[in-house]
Design a protein around this nucleic acid. Structure first.
Lengths: 194, 194
DNA sequence: GTCTATAGTGCGATAGAC
DNA sequence: GTCTATCGCACTATAGAC
């Protein structure tokens, strides 16, 4: 007889998603999640630092996606070009068949302020990691942080459009458009567009 | 005999700042803060939604500062120009004689992840408010959000430089430089600088 | 103003893998 | 034997309900 079934983390994760979606985040207790997964409260906290963290599983992998894009960028790329490579490169993590589940997850987060704060924190640490990777490629401050933050902003906005109701375009297409918009917007010369 | 001294909010605020700075945020209990201010725990939660919020007092006023700058901008200003007006306009909230106390407050926040998350949330809602104000001036999406987020990024970076050890330049000077850097960075044409 | 649920921690015991 | 995952219990503090 086994004392524990394998995949405790996975079970806790899906139990939490399920409960957060149906009952709501605040209304769900850690005890319930653990029970649903056939584990105890104490075990939950062994795997996740807090009740929020369970929903952000695999975010390291996702962050790696961005950093790989930086490594793959041509050595002479400017700061923004490098960031574009990172952001569009990471778009492979979100193929169109993941749209529905991404939407579901985003709805859960949008419904609760605590989860939103945690999401912002994840995005912020993503920006820091990208900035650090840029600095390692010789890009100086403040260009590195400025580019990293801009890239994350474009990613966030693109993601929001990608999971919007009725959206059909791929994430990478939306990203390219937004980067073009960013260039337009910051163009120093007066332009006919607003 | 007075039943309560006036300025409960103010007293709780400074008691909290004091304790967070000396003992640390986690190590400080709400009961201690209340006691130091000569009030009860219950009263603390009447004024502040949670233990974090006490440190972000007056952030509505600060947000107003940005929005006022938008109103004051010329009617034909482009999205980024308008945001520059907002961000540089709000710099009056941080004259050089506030540098020391701003540094102190920032140190407290930097020392605790929960406070950092709350800070990010405040910045995020500031960006949303700015974007909304831009839309009201006829600037369309995605330019409005893109400009608002860029402006908040420049503000955050400028603020960090402003309170850095040994810094002497005024906040508004730093902001102008960073906006110039942003324009340089996003310039579509190849440039000799990195 | 009191009472309570629950998040989150610390420490220790136990069960299995190796 | 070591190492790691799980459970059990006691505890504190936040935050909200009554």
């Amino acid at each position: 007889m086994v004392r524990w079934e394998p995949g405790a983390v996975e079970r806790l994760h899906s139990a939490a998603l399920e409960l957060y979606a149906t009952k709501g985040f605040e209304e769900t207790t850690v005890a319930e999640i653990a029970q649903t997964a056939g584990l105890t409260e104490r075990t939950f906290f062994r795997h996740f630092a807090d009740k929020r963290e369970v929903i952000f599983g695999g975010s390291e992998l996702f962050q790696e996606g961005f950093l790989d894009g930086i490594v793959a960028a041509p050595a002479d790329a400017k700061s923004l070009e490098t960031v574009i490579a990172a952001v569009t490169g990471a778009a492979v993590f979100f193929p169109d068949d993941r749209r529905a589940s991404s939407r579901q997850r985003t709805r859960i987060i949008a419904a609760n302020p605590q989860l939103q704060e945690r999401e912002l924190q994840k995005m912020s640490s993503l920006a820091s990691a990208i900035a650090a990777a840029l600095r390692e490629r010789g890009i100086r401050e403040p260009a590195a942080t400025l580019a990293a933050e801009s890239g994350v902003t474009v990613f966030r906005m693109s993601f929001a459009q990608w999971i919007a109701d009725g959206a059909e375009r791929s994430l990478i297409d939306i990203e390219r458009d937004l980067f073009a918009e960013l260039r337009l917007m910051t163009g120093s010369e007066a332009q006919p567009t607003t």
